[in-house]
Lab assay of single mutants.
Amino acid sequence: MTYKLILNGKTLKGETTTEAVDAATAEKVFKQYANDNGSDGEWTYDDATKTFTVTE
């Protein structure tokens, strides 16, 4: 399945997607991506749209 990440950071904004077997796997990928790019904030997940959002 395709999962989407929306970044609403102070310095990093945008979207990216990943293919993953489940939401937990996608979350690990996205959290590593956000960490690698210095983005940290409040995470939410919408199962209906398969979208993670991180807001700083």
Rank of each mutant, 00 (worst) to 15 (best):
M1T: 14
D36G: 06
K50I: 02
D40P: 07
T16F: 15
E19H: 13
T2H: 07
T18A: 07
G14T: 14
K28W: 08
A34G: 02
G41M: 10
Q32T: 07
D47S: 11
T17S: 11
W43I: 04
L12R: 07
A23K: 13
N8K: 12
E42M: 10
N37T: 10
D47N: 07
T18S: 04
Q32M: 08
M1W: 13
L5H: 01
N35E: 14
T53H: 06
G14W: 15
A23N: 05
V54F: 12
T44G: 05
F30N: 00
T55K: 06
T11C: 15
D22R: 01
T11M: 09
T16N: 04
D40R: 12
S39G: 11
Y33R: 03
L7Y: 10
K13V: 09
V54C: 12
G14I: 15
G14L: 15
G9S: 09
W43K: 00
T17M: 09
Y45G: 00
T25W: 06
Y45H: 01
D46K: 02
Y33G: 01
T2Y: 07
L7C: 09
S39D: 05
T17N: 05
T25S: 13
F30D: 01
M1H: 14
D40L: 12
Y3G: 02
N35K: 15
T55M: 07
D36S: 10
F52K: 00
G41K: 04
T16L: 15
T17D: 04
E15I: 10
K31V: 06
A23W: 13
T2L: 13
A48T: 11
E56M: 10
K28S: 08
I6P: 01
L7I: 14
D22K: 01
A23P: 08
G9W: 06
N37P: 04
E56T: 09
S39T: 15
D47K: 06
T51N: 01
L7N: 02
D40I: 14
T2R: 06
K4W: 10
A48K: 11
D46S: 05
N37M: 15
E19T: 14
Y3E: 03
K28Q: 12
E19L: 14
S39A: 15
T25R: 06
F52R: 00
T2V: 13
K28G: 06
Y33C: 04
T2D: 04
T2P: 05
F30A: 00
N35Q: 15
T11R: 07
K28A: 13
K28P: 02
T18K: 03
Q32H: 06
K50M: 08
E27V: 05
N37G: 06
T25H: 12
G9K: 06
T55E: 06
D22M: 02
V29Y: 15
V21N: 10
K4E: 03
A34P: 01
T51G: 00
T55N: 09
A26Q: 00
V29A: 08
I6V: 11
D36F: 11
A23I: 08
A20F: 03
T55I: 08
T53I: 07
G38D: 07
D47Y: 07
D40K: 13
A48N: 11
F30I: 00
Y3C: 03
D22Q: 02
K4N: 05
E56Q: 12
T49C: 04
M1C: 14
G41C: 07
T49M: 05
D40G: 10
A26K: 01
A20S: 06
K13L: 09
A23L: 08
Y3S: 02
V21F: 12
D47W: 07
T51E: 03
A26M: 01
Y33V: 05
L12C: 15
L5M: 04
T25I: 06
F30P: 00
T49Y: 04
G38H: 08
N8A: 09
L12V: 13
T51S: 04
I6Y: 06
E42F: 12
A34S: 04
G41D: 04
G14M: 14
Q32L: 09
T55A: 06
G41R: 04
T49W: 03
V54N: 01
G14F: 15
T49A: 05
D36V: 08
G41P: 02
T17C: 10
D36W: 09
S39V: 15
F30L: 04
D40Q: 13
M1Y: 14
E56P: 10
E19M: 14
L12H: 13
M1S: 13
G41N: 06
T16D: 02
L12P: 06
V29G: 03
D36N: 09
K10T: 13
F30S: 00
G9I: 10
T51H: 01
Y3M: 02
L12S: 13
V21E: 11
N37S: 10
E19I: 15
T11W: 13
D46A: 04
G38M: 12
T49E: 05
E15F: 14
A24D: 09
T18I: 15
T11V: 13
